[in-house]
Amino acid sequence: MEVFLIATSVVALAEIGDKTQLLAFMLAAKFRRPWPIVWGILVATLVNHAAAGWLGGFVTHWIGPTALRWILGLSFIAMAAWMLVPDKLDDDDAPKPGHGVFVSTVIAFFLAEMGDKTQIATVALAARTPDALAAVVAGTTVGMMLANVPAVLLGDKLAHRIPVKLVHGIAAGIFAVLGVVTLIWGSEI
Rank of each mutant, 00 (worst) to 15 (best):
T45E: 14
I41K: 11
K88Y: 06
T45L: 08
V47K: 05
G40P: 12
D18Q: 13
V38E: 13
A50V: 07
G17K: 14
L27F: 15
L55A: 12
W62M: 15
V43M: 02
T66I: 03
G53I: 02
E15C: 12
W62K: 11
V47I: 10
A51Q: 15
H49D: 07
A12L: 11
G40W: 07
A94D: 01
D92Y: 09
P34F: 14
K19W: 05
M83Q: 14
L55F: 06
A24S: 04
V43W: 03
A14M: 10
P95F: 13
G56A: 00
T45H: 01
P34L: 12
L22M: 11
G57E: 05
G56C: 07
A94C: 02
V47S: 12
R33P: 00
W70T: 09
N48C: 14
I71T: 07
P65E: 12
L68T: 09
K88C: 08
P95Q: 00
A12V: 06
D91P: 12
D18S: 11
L46P: 00
A52K: 08
L89C: 13
G17H: 10
W54Q: 13
H49F: 03
I16C: 09
F76C: 09
F58A: 15
G56T: 03
T20Q: 13
P36E: 11
S75Q: 01
L27Q: 05
V38K: 12
A52E: 00
A28Y: 04
W39Q: 10
A44Y: 05
K19F: 00
D87C: 00
W54E: 04
W54L: 15
T60K: 06
A51N: 04
A94I: 09
A50Q: 00
A50M: 10
P86S: 15
A28K: 03
A12G: 02
A51V: 15
D90F: 10
D92A: 14
G64E: 14
L42Y: 09
P34I: 12
I77T: 06
A44T: 11
A24H: 06
K30T: 08
V59H: 11
F58R: 14
D87P: 00
L46W: 00
E15S: 13
A52F: 03
D90I: 01
D91N: 06
W62Y: 15
L42G: 10
T66N: 06
Q21D: 12
P95H: 05
T66G: 02
H49C: 04
D91Q: 10
F76K: 05
W54I: 15
I37V: 09
G73Q: 03
A29D: 14
W70H: 06
F25E: 06
V59A: 14
R33E: 11
P65K: 13
M79E: 04
D87T: 01
R32W: 09
F31S: 08
L23Q: 08
G57C: 02
I37Q: 04
N48Q: 09
D93Q: 13
A29Q: 09
A14D: 11
L89P: 13
I77V: 04
G57T: 11
V47G: 01
W35L: 15
N48M: 08
M79F: 07
P86I: 11
P65Q: 13
A80T: 07
I71D: 05
S75N: 02
T66H: 01
R33I: 07
A52T: 03
K30G: 14
R69I: 06
T60F: 00
G73C: 04
M83D: 10
I77P: 07
L72N: 12
L46M: 08
L72Y: 04
